[in-house]
């Protein structure tokens, strides 16, 4: 059984035909060819598949696609913006991850960044701060130190208005 599901994906309306229980993760990766969202465990533990639905970070391996009908879904591919010069422009959290060494092997990075973006937009979602905001995103390379530094750098830059955050 498949059904039509319509949602907003990175700002554009998208309709897919899928089994209602298909994992949003698979729909993004296969039906939408957006492979930036990664699968690390398939059981809601590692956070590599984190995307933002209606403003909140979720693990896309845990979301049956029928539940995003009518929702706004943002994946890592939607973070960049088009600059005035026609060049794509990184989100400042992406820049911070490059600068501070927040990405090593990179497989957790898109999910980590999406969780961080949700936190930057809504710091009250994690009263415990950056560490709590990222507790659902496992990284095996960094020991998290450089990741914390990346997020803190992005927060500082947001405060100083060095870049426009979306």
């Amino acid at each position: 059984m498949t059904t039509n599901i319509t949602f907003q994906l990175n700002g554009r309306e998208k309709t897919v035909q899928a089994h209602p229980m298909a994992r949003l993760l698979d729909v993004l990766r296969q039906d939408c060819s957006l492979t930036g969202t990664k699968e690390g465990c398939g059981e809601g533990e590692c956070g590599a598949c984190t995307v933002i639905i209606d403003g909140r970070a979720v693990m896309s391996c845990m979301v049956p696609v029928c539940q995003v009908h009518g929702s706004k879904v943002e994946s890592i591919e939607g973070l960049e913006s088009m600059g005035a010069d026609g060049q794509t422009c990184l989100h400042l959290i992406q820049e911070a991850f490059i600068k501070c060494g927040g990405a090593q092997c990179g497989i957790c990075t898109p999910g980590m960044i999406m969780a961080a973006v949700a936190y930057l937009r809504q710091p009250e979602s994690a009263p415990g701060g950056v560490a709590e905001a990222l507790e659902g995103n496992l990284c095996r390379c960094t020991g998290y130190t450089r990741i914390f530094e990346s997020v803190k750098t992005a927060i500082d830059r947001m405060k100083t208005g060095a870049n426009q955050s979306r």
Binding site: S33, T37, L79, L90, I98, G102
Partner: peptide, 23 residues
């Protein structure tokens, strides 16, 4: 010098291609 990671941009944008990403 802490030169920026060569493939950093691809990794933070989701463009880096891992084996399961190949169609």
């Amino acid at each position: 010098k802490s030169v920026l990671r060569n493939e950093g941009r691809n990794k933070v944008t989701g463009r880096a291609v891992y084996v399961d990403d190949i169609a």
